[in-house]
């Protein structure tokens, strides 16, 4: 394989990229960014919890979009090891985030009320 391609411009050095991918990723990202900003800045939905949930969903979708179209993520690159490392990282990020929030929320609940918090008690 390398004998076939080494005399061309060394395209083996990096993965192949396509203009279509970048354009698709860019358009999707613009849409997925504009909608959350519009939702929050105009407050059209009225319900804050619902807005927050929708905004978070858009963020997750945009992260996936950028991973695929900008970072050229797929399950085959580097024989699947890239994807495996990503899965491992996603699991660790999930543990770190959910663990921290969960533990600290309970810590807050079980703390003695501090003087400034006592003022807020009935």
């Amino acid at each position: 394989m390398s004998a076939l391609h080494s005399d061309t411009h060394g395209h083996d050095a990096v993965p192949h990229v396509a203009l279509k991918d970048y354009a698709t990723g860019f358009v999707l990202s613009v849409v997925l960014t504009a909608i959350p900003f519009w939702l929050v800045m105009s407050g059209v939905l009225g319900d804050k919890a619902l807005t927050a949930m929708i905004v978070a969903t858009f963020a997750v979708v945009q992260v996936v979009v950028q991973m695929i179209f900008f970072l050229h993520m797929n399950t085959r690159s580097e024989g699947g090891w890239n994807f495996l490392a990503l899965i491992f990282t996603v699991i660790l990020v999930g543990i770190v985030l959910s663990g921290s929030l969960w533990v600290m929320a309970h810590l807050n609940q079980n703390m003695m009320p501090m003087p400034h918090a006592m003022n807020e008690l009935p």
Binding site: V40, A59, V63, Q66, L71
Partner: peptide, 21 residues
């Protein structure tokens, strides 16, 4: 560079947008 853009998606969503909410 693209990775930094991915991180920024998290920043503007969870810090700025949700902070404003």
């Amino acid at each position: 560079w693209h990775f930094l853009d991915v991180v920024w998606v998290g920043v503007f969503t969870f810090v700025y947008l949700m902070g404003t909410l």
